[in-house]
């Protein structure tokens, strides 16, 4: 299985440039699309996504393509969760989303994306209104951390980080549904199907199962959201290449962006990285304010492995206990016989 994945990534290297700049939706809305990017996908290493907040207009095409691609049932995922006035974007016949440039949108638009925390979505756009700086959109999905908390926490390897491509994958066939991954995720990403008798965890897997097989037919591995984003506000690729691209954009327009690339260092680095608007801090967009570069998974593992290194401490303790116990029991028996 890993071999196929590596081959997919090789193909990705060949077709990388086309993949990053192509896509049908962007051609339709070329008037607001940014300049094409030149990043390429090298033949190996972790992949990820780069989200550029300055380009996102909050159209939510990415949300729709995500659930359509990942075979999520529309009536279940849309009708039950999204208020009727917000549903039009998710209707298949309504293929042309409203993508008014941000400065032409009404900041007082009450649309608050009320489904944003719902467990039935892997990928959401959230809107944050801030009196000083207007309003901001942010795309939220699994960050594909370098050292994921969910992977460290999972007792049965249902969450794993693929060594070849860095994707944090979920295997429902072994998952016991303990939800320790939810406790461990600093970004509150894994969602649990609370209202199902046979529930599972729902989270972004970078469309690996659903779209990457396209690479076998010569297409670039993509994610639904990056493929369909009309603005190219989110792009897919090798993490190193995306990081270089983000730094390039930052250098070209330093006044436009927050100088820190979110995801470069936070929580030990994440596969998905963010360029935020100038003056906007991650905590303004719902990212945890308390989260620094420290990785809690590594911290927890350090404590656990210090205590249980090679099982020496438990074995030594057991030896001592068994020795003291049997000595005392013998002594007690002897005293009892003497009575």
């Amino acid at each position: 299985m890993n071999k196929t994945r590596r081959e997919i990534l090789k193909l990705a290297g060949v077709a990388g440039v086309a993949g990053l700049t192509g896509g049908t939706a962007s051609a339709v809305h070329a008037q607001v699309a940014p300049e094409t990017t030149k990043a390429t996908i090298p033949t190996n290493g972790a992949v990820g996504m780069l989200y550029d907040a300055s380009l996102c207009v909050g159209c939510q095409v990415c949300v729709r393509s995500c659930y359509e691609t990942n075979f999520l049932n529309r009536s279940y995922y849309v009708d039950q969760v999204i208020p009727p006035e917000e549903q039009s974007i998710f209707l298949k016949e309504d293929l042309k989303p409203i993508i008014a440039p941000k400065d032409q949108q009404d900041p007082s638009d009450p649309k608050i994306y009320s489904y944003a925390n719902d467990y039935r979505f892997r990928n959401v756009i959230q809107k944050y209104v801030d009196e000083e700086n207007g309003f901001h959109f942010v795309k939220r999905q699994c960050m594909h951390c370098n050292h994921p908390g969910c992977v460290s926490a999972c007792p049965v390897k249902a969450m794993t980080k693929n060594e070849a491509d860095g994707v944090v994958e979920y295997n429902q066939e072994v998952c016991i549904g303990c939800r320790y991954c939810q406790i461990a995720c600093p970004f509150n990403i894994p969602k649990f199907e609370w209202h199902r008798a046979v529930p599972k965890i729902v989270k972004c897997e970078l469309c690996k199962d659903t779209l990457w097989n396209d690479a076998a037919s010569g297409k670039t591995p993509q994610t639904a959201c990056t493929r369909d984003c009309p603005q190219k506000a989110v792009i897919f690729g090798n993490r190193d290449a995306l990081m270089a691209e983000a730094k390039k954009r930052l250098a070209e327009n330093p006044e436009k962006y927050n100088p820190t690339i979110y995801g470069e260092e936070v929580y030990g680095g994440t596969g998905v990285i963010y360029l935020l608007d100038a003056g906007v801090e991650p905590e303004n967009l719902g990212f945890p304010a308390e989260l620094g570069a420290e990785n809690y998974a590594q911290k927890s593992e350090k404590v656990q492995h210090t205590i249980y290194k090679f099982g020496i401490a438990p074995l030594a303790l057991y030896g001592t206990l068994a020795y003291l116990g049997s000595k005392n029991a013998k002594k007690h028996k002897k005293e009892g016989d003497d009575e």
Binding site: K157, V174, I176, G177, F192, P199
Partner: peptide
Amino acid sequence: VDIGRYWNSYNFFVPGRWQPNSVMFE
């Protein structure tokens, strides 16, 4: 009662599934 996919809990007895980094496993 608490775990969602209780029928999979036999994985605790499958050595290939053991995840020693997990505190919950221990």
